[in-house]
Design a protein around this nucleic acid. Structure first.
Lengths: 338, 338
DNA sequence: GACTCCACTGCAATCGTTCGCAGTGTTCTG
DNA sequence: CAGAACACTGCGAACGATTGCAGTGGAGTC
């Protein structure tokens, strides 16, 4: 082992001052309180001893950990790495550190992880696991916990959020399909318990008009659920020529079901995804999808939380980031009717 | 704000005991030291007050943070989420928390992040950014820091590591190509400064025999570097009918260059990747590649580190996990010679 | 009945910081 | 030259837990 790490007291002794002075000299905020000559001597001593401040001790004293908890459903879902990366980048810039946990959409697990983060005295939370109704978040907000949701929203007035402009994305997608000549457009809706599922569905219904298109709700934002939903859709509405998927994974499921039936995309069915996940352009076929600026979403969420933590009293605002349809090869004109 | 959180002293007072007793009652390790009736009373009081232990304070006293630092180059690289997830899963099971940072292959940034983690007094490190020569890791090892590398190794005797059996993977890939009839097999080698690049190249040279195949080293494990290397390869060795890429991203770069030249995979050139990254089966064409058990790698690395931290004195061992070729559509028999 | 032993609990030091307060010495003001 | 203002530094009490040590009382032993 490394032999005890040098402490502030060691540095102080080495520089011939009191630890309080050393503390002030080493902290940029208070450095001006100490004679610059002394400060320099202390800095040198600190470097020589290889002093590394103990954030735990500091946190104990100041009751601020400069750490924030980040909750995602599953890091392995390609949607989240860019978001997390954005969060980390902005958090870093402010001297905060992210504590990242996975909840696997399991409420018990989420509570356990939340408690773990609380025990580490994180200063706030960035939550990517929000459901529209979310008791845990409600309790936290109740207690005055600093809290920002990202990608999704929770139905709690006063909770800041950063989301994509899903309604506009849906509008762009539907317009694109219309322009190609599609009239029988269906929606493979995401789970309605989360805001993205609900918002995208509502926008779809609005765009599809009173006549409406078929809607099938998926059990989850997964390839498997997407495939199952597509199966139902194709069985019940064989006339469908285009589908808007709730997200890219669902779209991937649709492609899989299509392939299994020996039908082809886009010749037999046009498919539009949502998110523009990494490598969506390399799929078979390259996926037409709505791009959501995930990295930027993470950045903004972190920014919001930091402001909440440091700012005097900021207004809880929700940031809406623009989305954009990117057209690739999974959409084409509908097949001629038989 | 939430009004001060209840402390151990609050719980103790509520239960009519001393905080030391409360501490013992709440800690499973020492619970048997207190009368079970008292313990129960304390537990109840704790629950009622919503007591959450302060891990920072505990860490200060015990000089163990039950947190470990995890260094990855870039979370956005699809290789790492499964590894990180594996790490987190196993760490969780032992009550540890991961502090995840990105280094972007930048030495200065890595040092800064490392220092940040050190200041949070992590109990050890899991490093996915190891280069063969790595001064930072050497210094850390020197100081007796608990340290495990994952996916890659560092040339420091006594440093535990968890890696895939790359040599065997290469052997399988080359054998597969040979069986298809290829004789002019090239290797798009990964950077030789990291162990995976070097090991895979060595294995390739060994398999290719003294005659050898063409080798081009890529500047990095990126699509862009892979594409540039492919450009050079195709220009210099037009007779090549198959390439083994250093990893999937490089393979993706090869596919891109091929497409840009109007040549097709696998008809004109067979391509084998490495890693079997998520969605490699959905690419165009679905990628033949060597599967590396990334999640399991993470699990094992975490396990190793935990043993290192808690175990009496465990022997530093390096774990090699099996790899397996998975054949998809990016490989085929070579085109007939003109 | 005096002794030991044991189960249980309290006392107080400690971990490494930060920060209010007080104590220097120096300079400025009138 | 007295007094105030100021710049700088030291003192010591927190922050919230853990833990060695000591104290208490009751049960067991001979």
């Amino acid at each position: 082992m490394a032999g005890r790490r040098p402490t502030l007291d060691d540095v102080a002794r080495a520089a011939g001052v009191h630890k309080a002075t050393a503390s002030r000299a080493l902290n940029p905020e208070t450095r001006n309180q100490v004679k610059s000559e002394t400060a320099h001597r202390i800095t040198v001593a600190a470097r020589r001893l290889g002093y590394v401040p103990n954030t735990l001790a500091r946190g104990l004293r100041t009751s601020r950990s400069t750490a924030v908890g980040v909750l995602v459903p599953d890091l392995t879902n390609p949607l989240f790495p860019p978001i997390v990366r954005g969060i980390q980048d902005r958090l870093d810039a402010h001297g905060y550190t992210a504590l990242l946990v996975n909840t696997d959409n399991d409420e018990a697990r989420e509570r356990a992880q939340f408690a773990e983060l609380a025990s580490r005295r994180v200063d706030g939370f960035i939550v990517a696991t929000a459901r529209r109704q979310h008791p845990l978040l409600a309790e936290a907000a109740e207690r005055g916990t600093a809290l920002v949701t990202v990608n999704r929203t929770v139905e709690l007035p006063g909770t800041p959020a950063v989301v994509g402009d899903d309604a506009d994305g849906v509008a762009q997608a539907v317009a694109h399909l219309r322009l190609l000549g599609h009239t029988r457009i269906a929606h493979l809706a995401g789970p309605q318990s989360v805001s993205t599922g609900a918002v995208r569905l509502r926008a779809f219904l609005q765009q599809a008009g009173p006549a409406g298109g078929a809607v099938v709700e998926c059990a989850g934002y997964t390839e498997q659920a997407g495939r199952a939903a597509t199966r139902r859709l194709l069985d019940q509405c064989p006339g469908t020529t285009a589908v808007l998927a709730g997200n890219d994974l669902i779209a991937l499921g649709a492609l899989a079901e299509l392939a299994a039936r020996g039908r082809r995309c886009p010749r037999d069915l046009s498919v539009v995804g949502f998110n523009d996940m990494p490598f969506a352009d390399r799929f078979q076929p390259p996926l037409t999808t709505v791009r959501v600026p995930h990295h930027e979403m993470g950045v903004q969420a972190a920014q919001l939380l930091v402001e909440l933590l440091t700012g005097p009293q900021t207004i809880a605002r929700t940031v809406v980031l623009p989305t954009q349809l990117v057209v690739r090869d999974s959409t084409a004109a509908p097949p001629p009717p038989l």
